[in-house]
Design a protein around this nucleic acid. Structure first.
Lengths: 346, 346
DNA sequence: GCCTACTATTGGATCGATCCAGTCCGTACC
DNA sequence: GGTACGGACTGGATCGATCCAATAGTAGGC
């Protein structure tokens, strides 16, 4: 490809290329950005010199002039220890790949965990990023207000729960459909008392998933009384909640709002000598690594994170090109990954 | 803090601030970069105007002039599906926080998975990053040669296995010590036949960890014959290898090269009705989320990833400041997190 | 009072790209 | 032959910071 060249050597610039090709700087610039303006032979000649010198436009100079950095900001929060939803890995990777296709890059930044707005303004004022991707909308989206206020482009992963009239572009996964898929599957394999282990009532996402559970039970004409339980998102709380439900010996299906909670149920089963799958059906949510590697394998609702990332990048590009966004809200469907925790002949 | 201001408004520049404060541009620049050069009252006046206008220096302009972007590149590979080592999460987050302290940011990029060099050169030539952090040194470090060749600063997470004479800065965790910790612990709780489940012989990291197991056995005067097994890094392969070792009923301790493999052992125990902890001791490696949430809790060797990130950033800063690096190689100690998979009275 | 030394501050040039307002030239038209 | 037109290309100005050399101002020494 391009010849290796020490950085301490003079890097070639537009002017270098122009001189070598016997044209003006503007013509080289056009060769890169508007090749259709050049005569065929001129274009070929310029491109040849570019390849020969291993020239790449200087991002800083371009950024200064065009006022666009081709960088997209993402505030990066780690998954809390002890929960299994490190699913951002898959999402971020696809995001990086998808943005690379249009010459963009992802810039990570951090901020005070207690202040969801921290960090955004600084990057904006420094014109370091063109747009933001926002992922933590479960806590409401104060970022949206801030960014909308300063006129900065952004796309969220997660719908604007608290303000359905918000017009900003977003991509989300239909959580209710996920809860429904999980519950339908448990009913299909023969469970008639299917419990829901969910998050606290304040969680919009948790309540959304729960409605799917309820919908599936209603459709099958099954009773939900006493089966909808709310708990906090950790293994131990879930384990104890499961014990309580298992006490009467009648509840045999567990649809859970997260893999963490589902793993708590598995702990309870192990402590009672019950077999996941054969005796009790358990379904988690997120298809995290924990679901994949735990024994005997946890059936789980999988979010199409790769597709989410692709749609987000598409929306970002649309917004940045200043086109009106025809359809700024996109809802994607989750799928169910079946493993042994719901196989009765396990 | 600073007033909210639409991006479509004119952003304040150095010149704006200078005019408002009644000083020259250079003085404002000094107020930011060399405040000790200013008289106290001048400094105060300039800072006041900066705060009042909500001024932040334009990164592109600064970058163009100083030839440094304050960006650090990190090629981002996702953890393969089905393995539990999504530990990069912890590492990357600390990396982001530590770099933020010196005004740097992490830029993610991707590359052809088959070409470990892909992506680096392009970012360099565009002067988009000042340095790189390289994490995947287990496959050798061709990146080091490339970057060294072009004179680009970088620090690796992982020592240069194939070329111990390499002089580049690196940070690593003592894997042999980790294997030793795991094995010593198993011996301490009473196991006398402690097996090692490791990766293929080609893995330098795997062999390193294995030497610690061997060292601990030797120190305790225990026999290692037939107990060192190599397998591939997935749950199923490990499960089968564990079954084979359990066949004779004498092996009661398992030190594993990864949590994935340790989870495979747990699967085998479940299938044989053996109790982790009480009957068989199992130790994993990496303290991944899987180790934390699986039943009954997996004892695991934990790498100080946060500290690794901090040391890496420290080295990056040293290299970037063009100081000679006094100690370009730093080895950190892992710790052992004890959970129920090695508790005999579980 | 004059020179030196040093501090505080200034203004022009510069980094490398793109924007903008042209110039040049060949062709078509009346 | 003169004019209009449009495609191909050019060169100065510009983005917003920092570098550099130079200039006021201030204190100290003899």
């Amino acid at each position: 490809m391009s010849p290796i060249r020490r950085l301490t050597d003079a890097q070639p610039t537009l002017a270098t290329v122009a001189e070598r090709a016997g044209v003006s700087r503007q013509t080289v610039s056009n060769a890169l950005n508007n090749p259709e303006l050049l005569r065929e032979d001129t274009l070929a000649r310029v491109q040849e010199v570019i390849a020969e010198l291993g020239y790449t436009p200087n991002r800083a100079a371009r950024q200064l002039r065009t006022r666009s950095s081709h960088m997209i900001g993402l505030r990066f929060e780690p998954a809390p220890e002890g929960t299994s939803n490190a699913l951002m890995d898959r999402f971020v990777h696809t995001l990086v790949e998808a943005t690379a296709k249009t010459g963009h890059h992802i810039v990570l930044f951090s901020g005070d965990p207690d202040d969801p707005l921290d960090g955004y303004d600084e990057l904006l004022r420094a014109t370091a990023v063109d747009a933001f991707v926002i992922t933590d909308t479960y806590a409401g989206t104060p970022q949206a207000d801030l960014l909308h206020g300063v006129g900065a482009p952004f796309v969220t992963f997660g719908r604007p729960w608290e303000d359905p009239s918000a017009r900003h572009p977003w991509v989300d996964v239909d959580g209710a459909r996920g809860g429904e898929l999980a519950t339908e599957h448990l009913i299909e394999v023969g469970h008639t008392r299917v419990a829901w282990l969910g998050w606290e009532r304040e969680s919009r996402i948790g309540e959304d998933r729960r409605t799917g559970w309820r919908r599936a039970l209603d459709a099958a004409g099954l009773d939900a009384t006493g089966l909808g339980v709310r708990t906090t998102d950790n293994v131990d709380a879930a384990r104890m909640a499961a014990h309580e439900l298992l006490e009467d010996g009648r509840t045999t299906g567990f649809a859970c709002v997260s893999d963490t909670i589902a793993l708590g149920v598995l702990h309870a089963l192990a402590e009672r000598g019950l077999r996941p799958g054969a005796d009790i059906g358990v379904v988690g949510f997120d298809d995290s690594l924990g679901a994949q590697v735990t024994w005997p394998g946890l059936t789980s609702v999988r979010q199409p994170l790769e597709q989410v990332a692709i749609e987000i990048v598409d929306l970002v590009n649309t917004v940045l090109s200043l086109k009106a966004v025809a359809n700024p809200a996109r809802m994607l469907e989750p799928t169910l990954v079946v493993r042994r925790s719901t196989l009765r002949d396990g």
